[in-house]
Simulated scan of single mutants.
Amino acid sequence: MKTPIIMIAMLSLSAPALAGGDMPVKTSTEVAYQDLNLATAQGQKKLSDRIDIAARRVCKLDNSITGTRIRDRDAERCYVAAKERANQQFAAVVEQHAKGG
């Protein structure tokens, strides 16, 4: 039996981390869906919302940068990539659920 989670992961390649000689930091989180009925549009919407919230959190998309309203480009790229990977997992999970898995 597969674990009912979707992984949201990002690889932080921020300049300060690289300048300090540190390795890039990998951050991830799990999005649970065992409580959702993925056979319904409502269940799929809830999972999509959870994925969006997790991707924003992992990529720090909503963090403010002092002195500007402009979003961090690295955070935006991370968010887009994380959502793409998670949505691929989401599609596979919904398909498997539709087949009775």
Score class of each variant (00 low, 15 high):
T66M: 06
N37K: 08
K83H: 07
S14M: 11
E95Y: 11
T27L: 13
K46N: 01
A98I: 05
A39R: 13
V93C: 07
V80K: 13
S64T: 12
D72T: 04
G101N: 13
T68N: 06
R73I: 12
Q96E: 14
K26Y: 05
Q42N: 04
A98T: 14
N87H: 09
G20W: 03
A9R: 14
A92M: 13
L36I: 05
G101M: 11
P24Y: 07
A81C: 03
V93R: 09
A39C: 04
I53A: 15
A98P: 00
A15N: 09
A81V: 05
A98N: 12
P4A: 15
S14R: 15
R73W: 05
S64H: 07
L61Q: 05
A15Q: 14
K83L: 15
K2S: 13
K2V: 13
R77C: 03
I6E: 02
A32V: 06
S48V: 00
M7R: 10
P4K: 15
K46I: 04
D35Q: 09
A19F: 09
V94K: 07
I8Q: 02
G100H: 10
L13Y: 09
I8T: 05
K45Y: 05
E84M: 11
I6D: 01
E84W: 06
S28V: 01
Q89V: 02
S14N: 15
N87K: 08
M1F: 09
N37Y: 00
A15L: 14
